[in-house]
C-alpha cells in the first residue's frame, strides 16, 4: 500500500510516464466502483432486463408500450413532470435568493450555521417527518389552517386539500429550497467581490451588475442546479406516500402499485418498464446537467 505513494509530489500528469504504477494506484478506487456497480448497477440491470421481458421471461416490447400508452400512466407522467418542474423552478429561484441573503451575513454567524445545517437536514430527511409536519400545519385541523381561518381565510372551503397536487407541491418546495441552497452556494461564493466593485467603479448600478455580470456567470450553475432539483422531485416518493397514501397519480405511485401485484399478473414487468421510463427521463436531465457543469467550470478556470 505504501509503495503506491512513492512520488506524492509528482504533478497530476507525471504518473502517465509510468502506466503500470498508475494502474496500481487505480486499484485504490476499485472498492468504491465495485460497490456502485453491484448495489446501484445491479438493481438497474434487473429493471432494464425486466422491462423487456414478459411474465414468462420471453423478450417483449409490450411492457414499454403499455407504460407509455395507458391513459392512467400518461396522466401519472404528466402530473409527475408538472409537479417536478413547478417545484424545481420555485425552489431554484427562492433558494438562490435565500442563499444570497445568508451569504451576505458573516461567515461564522449563527444565521449561516443555522441555515447551512438545517439545509442539510431538510434536503435529505425528506419523506415522513415532512409529510407529518405539513399535515400538522395545513391539514384539516392544522395550526396554520386554524390561524388562516381566524384571519378569515378558509382554505378547505376554497377547495384546498393537503393531499392534493397543490398540497404536495407546497411540501416538495420544503426540501427543494434547502437542496438549492446547498447546490448554489458554491457558485454564489464564486462571484468575486472585485467584479461587483469593478462594475460599480465603471458606473454600473446594482441592477446592471446583476444583469450583465453576475447572472451570466451564475447561469450555467443555476440551470444545472434546477435540473438536479427537477430530478430530485421526479424521483421523490416518500413524501407523496406518507402524505397521500397513493391517492395522487404519480409515476412512483404507479410503479409501487404495479409491483404490489394487486392489479394483474404480469403487471410487475410493466412497473419495471415504468421504472426504465423514469431512468431515461433522469438520464436526459443528467446529461444536460453535466454539460452545464462543464460550462460553469469554464468561468472558474483562471
Amino acid at each position: 500500500m505504501s509503495s503506491l505513494l512513492d512520488t506524492p509530489t509528482a504533478a497530476p500528469d507525471a504518473p502517465a510516464a509510468r502506466p503500470e504504477r498508475r494502474w496500481r494506484a487505480a486499484l485504490g478506487l476499485l472498492p468504491f466502483a465495485l460497490y456502485f456497480l453491484v448495489f446501484l448497477g445491479g438493481p438497474l440491470y434487473f429493471v432494464i432486463s425486466g422491462a423487456f421481458t414478459d411474465a414468462d421471461g420471453r423478450p417483449t416490447l409490450g411492457n414499454l408500450v403499455a407504460s407509455l400508452m395507458s391513459p392512467q400512466y400518461l396522466l401519472a407522467f404528466r402530473q409527475s413532470l408538472l409537479l417536478s418542474a413547478v417545484t424545481a423552478v420555485i425552489g431554484a429561484v427562492f433558494g438562490t435568493f435565500l442563499a444570497q441573503a445568508v451569504l451576505t451575513a458573516r461567515p461564522r454567524s449563527p444565521l449561516r450555521r443555522t441555515v447551512s445545517t438545517a439545509s442539510g437536514v431538510l434536503a435529505y430527511f425528506g419523506g415522513v417527518p415532512l409529510a407529518f409536519a405539513f399535515i400538522a400545519a395545513l391539514g384539516q385541523t392544522g395550526l396554520a389552517t386554524a390561524w388562516l381561518r381566524s384571519a378569515g381565510i378558509d382554505l378547505y372551503a376554497s377547495g384546498f386539500r393537503i393531499d392534493s397536487l397543490t398540497g404536495l407541491a407546497l411540501t416538495y418546495v420544503y426540501f427543494q429550497i434547502p437542496l438549492m441552497v446547498i447546490l448554489i452556494t458554491p457558485a454564489l461564493e464564486g462571484l468575486l467581490p472585485q467584479w461587483r466593485e469593478a462594475a460599480e467603479n465603471l458606473g454600473a448600478s446594482a441592477w446592471s451588475y446583476w444583469r450583465l455580470v453576475a447572472l451570466p456567470v451564475l447561469a450555467p450553475a443555476f440551470a444545472g442546479a434546477t435540473l438536479v432539483l427537477f430530478g430530485n422531485a421526479f424521483a421523490a416518493y416518500a413524501t407523496a406516500l406518507a402524505l397521500t397514501s397513493g391517492s395522487i397519480p404519480l409515476v412512483p405511485t404507479a410503479i409501487a402499485s404495479a409491483l404490489s401485484g394487486n392489479v394483474l399478473v404480469g403487471q410487475a414487468n410493466v412497473g419495471l418498464a415504468l421504472g426504465l421510463d423514469m431512468v431515461v427521463v433522469i438520464a436526459i436531465v443528467m446529461v444536460a446537467y453535466l454539460w452545464l457543469q462543464r460550462r460553469a467550470a469554464r468561468w472558474s478556470r483562471r
Binding site: L192, Q194, W195, A198, N201, L202, R302
Partner: peptide
C-alpha cells in the same frame, strides 16, 4: 462609487 468617475485596476481576477 458608480458616480465618482474614477477608473480602478484591481490586484487580479477583476475582469468579467
Amino acid at each position: 462609487a458608480s458616480k465618482r468617475d474614477t477608473g480602478m485596476v484591481f490586484q487580479a481576477y477583476s475582469l468579467f
